[in-house]
């Protein structure tokens, strides 16, 4: 195809959008609605996920050592912990650290004399431990079982109920998100199929004329593809812009009106949300536009 023909088809594709204003508007509106809803559910999902993740990361497993456990054995336990993939981070708390922390937390300045009465005799001499934080609380029980198998481990403290609740909650959110996204995709396919059917009836005569005067399939298809992809691009840019401002506004509103929530919950930064939302929405919009326009003409190319 000549460059002039390519430019002509590109121009015709853009003109088609204008010529079929109502059809174009209906397609853009359908796509905008679907991608916007997808964006809303994705944002809710990612924030819930981050909230659960933050809660998960706060759940620690504590490993205590047998009496008179040598430093070599403690180091070996540390290495064993480090080798586990579910471990996010861990830290060693010595008996002195444990005593200092206890004094600060429970005795404070008011009861400093109680602490002083122990002088150099650490009442928590056996309380040296490893504090372990997981990246996936559902693996907590497996980790605890593993830890009990290690030499020198006296006791392991875990928050079984918290872990189970968080794991169940996470599964529930994943299930709801997948369900909602499947329903949204089904609705989008239904609506887009309807708009495409309207498009077919509007354009069938035009396609037939092109074929009768000897247009090749590629020539017939080109303006439709330009039209479809442009509609797809507009239909995904509009909801993305809306989402950007809506998300920022909600973040500012919550931060201003419900500052107490700030300590419990932090929004996922907008850049992180858009890291996935932007490419997925663009691929969805352009893909639907491309496939929709191909479907519009495919049946009529047989003339």
């Amino acid at each position: 195809m000549r460059l002039s023909s390519l430019l002509y088809n590109f121009k015709q594709g853009l003109l088609n959008i204008w010529r079929n204003k109502m059809f174009s508007l209906a397609s853009i509106a359908t796509m905008t609605a679907c991608i916007f809803l997808f964006g809303v559910f994705y944002s809710i999902g990612i924030n819930f996920n981050s909230m659960v993740k933050a809660a998960e990361e706060g759940v620690a497993v504590t490993v205590y050592f047998e009496e008179n456990c040598s430093q070599d054995i403690i180091d070996a336990i540390g290495k064993a912990i480090e080798s586990r993939p579910e471990v996010l981070r861990y830290k060693f708390v010595s008996a002195d650290d444990a005593w200092a922390s206890f004094q600060q937390e429970y005795l404070g300045d008011e009861h400093a004399s109680v602490a002083e009465s122990f002088a150099d005799d650490n009442p928590l001499a056996d309380a040296a431990n490893y504090e372990i934080y997981l990246n996936d609380v559902s693996k907590q029980t497996a980790l605890v079982d593993f830890l009990y198998e290690q030499d020198g481990v006296r006791e392991v403290h875990q928050s079984e109920d918290v872990a189970r609740t968080l794991t169940d909650f996470n599964k529930l959110i994943s299930g709801i998100s997948v369900g909602v996204i499947i329903i949204l995709i089904a609705v989008a396919v239904f609506l887009i199929n309807n708009t495409v059917t309207v498009g077919i009836s509007v354009r069938s005569e035009e396609i037939a004329i092109m074929k009768y005067i000897g247009a090749k399939d590629a020539f017939v298809r080109a303006p439709f593809l330009v039209e479809g992809v442009t509609i797809g691009a507009i239909g995904s840019i509009i909801p993305l812009v809306l989402m950007y401002f809506l998300y920022s506004s909600i973040m500012n509103y919550v931060a201003g009106r419900f500052s107490a929530l700030g300590s419990m919950f932090t929004f996922v930064p907008i850049a992180d949300v858009f890291k996935v939302l932007l490419p997925v929405s663009m691929v969805l919009g352009l893909g639907i536009g491309f496939i929709g326009s191909r479907l519009t003409i495919i049946r009529h190319l047989k003339v």
Binding site: S5, E206, I209, M210, Y212
Partner: peptide
């Protein structure tokens, strides 16, 4: 069977564009 949204010139020129004629 004319393209209703295109003028007389464009309807005729269209047949030449289809065969990739030079502008």
């Amino acid at each position: 069977r004319l393209l209703q949204d295109r003028n007389v010139y464009d309807n005729v020129a269209f047949a030449m564009r289809v065969v990739d004629s030079a502008p």
